[in-house]
C-alpha cells in the first residue's frame, strides 16, 4: 500500500529551552497508508494531538522528519499543498466555524484556495450532500446542535477535497446519538469517497470502525495493529488506563457465533436495539 504520511524518529518538546520543558513526543516512527482508516488512541496528554498537528504542518518537528505525499512538512513553500492534502477537524465545533451561515462557512476553505465561484458552489453542494446536511444550508451555526455543527465543520474540510482528514477528538463534546452520527459519516467518507481518515479519540469503543489502530502513552507509540489484535491484549489496554469497548466486543463475539449484527455497534444502547430486532 502507498504511504500518504510518513513519520521518522519524530520528537517534539513544548517550551523547549525553558526550565519547565515538556517532552510531548519522542522517537515516533509510523506511517499512514492511502485510503485507510487509522485510529490513534491514548489518554489525555499522551501526545496524540501533538502528533496530529504535525500531519499538516501546524507544528514542525524538533527532531526527526514528517513527509506528506513525499513533501517534508518543513518545506515552507509547499505548506499550502500539504494543508490542501490533509484537512483537520477539531474538538470544539464552535471554535472552528467562521461564518454565520452554514454554506458560507463550508465555502471558506475552497475560497482560500482561490477557486472559481462555480467550482466552489459545486464543492459546497457536494460536501453538504455527502454528509446529508443540505437542509441546514442557510441555517446559522448558532441554531444547530453540537453534532450538526461538527458535521458542518467536517463539510468545511471535505469541500477542500483533501486526501486525508484528521479528526482530533471530534466527538468529545457530543451526546451518544450525535457521536454515532458523526462516526457513521466519517466511516462513509472513508468507504465511499476513499478519503484517508485519522481519528484521534480516547473512547475505545470508537475504534471498532477503523482498519488499524495506534495506542500512545507518554509521547510514545505503545501498540500498533488491527483492533482485533489490540483487543486481544486486554491487559495492556487496561494498564494504559483506557476503557474497554464492551458492547463492541460482545457484538463481535456474537457475530463470530453467526448472529447477523451491523459492524457499527459501539455502545450498549445500539447493541440492545439491534439484538431486539433479531428474530
Amino acid at each position: 500500500m502507498e504511504k500518504l504520511i510518513e513519520v521518522t524518529n519524530l520528537a517534539y518538546t513544548y517550551r523547549a529551552g525553558a526550565g519547565n520543558a515538556v517532552t510531548a513526543l519522542s522517537g515516533i516512527n509510523m506511517e499512514v497508508y492511502r485510503g485507510e482508516f487509522l485510529a490513534i488512541t491514548g489518554q489525555n496528554g499522551s501526545g496524540k494531538s501533538t502528533l496530529a498537528r504535525h500531519f499538516n504542518g501546524l507544528l514542525t518537528p524538533d527532531r526527526g522528519e514528517v513527509f506528506v505525499e513525499g513533501i517534508p512538512i518543513t518545506d515552507k513553500k509547499r505548506i499550502a499543498d500539504i494543508r490542501k492534502a490533509v484537512g483537520m477537524v477539531f474538538q470544539n465545533p464552535d471554535n472552528q466555524l467562521v461564518s454565520s451561515i452554514v454554506e458560507e462557512d463550508v465555502a471558506f476553505g475552497p475560497e482560500n484556495l482561490g477557486l472559481a465561484p462555480e467550482v466552489i458552489r459545486n464543492r459546497v453542494d457536494w460536501a453538504l450532500k455527502t454528509l446529508n446536511i443540505e437542509s441546514l444550508r442557510l441555517e446559522s451555526p448558532n441554531n444547530l446542535s453540537e453534532g450538526q455543527k461538527q458535521l458542518v465543520a467536517i463539510a468545511g474540510v471535505l469541500a477542500m477535497k483533501p486526501e486525508c482528514i484528521v479528526l482530533d477528538e471530534p466527538t468529545a463534546h457530543l451526546d451518544p446519538r450525535s457521536r454515532r452520527e458523526v462516526l457513521e459519516n466519517v466511516t462513509r467518507l472513508n468507504r465511499n469517497e476513499g478519503i484517508t481518515i485519522i481519528l484521534l479519540t480516547h473512547f475505545m469503543n470508537e475504534v471498532v470502525f477503523c482498519d488499524r489502530m495506534i495506542i500512545m502513552d507518554m509521547g510514545k507509540i505503545i501498540i500498533t495493529g488491527t483492533p482485533q489484535d489490540v483487543f486481544n491484549k486486554e491487559a495492556d489496554i487496561v494498564r494504559l488506563g483506557l476503557d474497554f469497548p464492551v458492547a463492541a466486543r460482545i457484538a463481535s463475539g456474537l457475530r463470530a457465533k453467526g448472529l447477523i449484527l451491523p459492524e457499527s455497534i459501539i455502545d450498549a444502547e445500539e447493541l440492545v436495539n439491534q439484538l431486539c430486532l433479531l428474530k
Binding site: 499538516n56 501546524l58 484537512g87 475560497e111 482561490g114 465561484p117 474540510v157 477542500m160
Partner: peptide
C-alpha cells in the same frame, strides 16, 4: 489548517 493566509489570493463563492 483550512489554508487561510489572509485576503490575498482568496475568491468568493457568491
Amino acid at each position: 489548517s483550512r489554508s487561510y493566509t489572509g485576503g490575498k489570493g482568496r475568491t468568493k463563492m457568491k
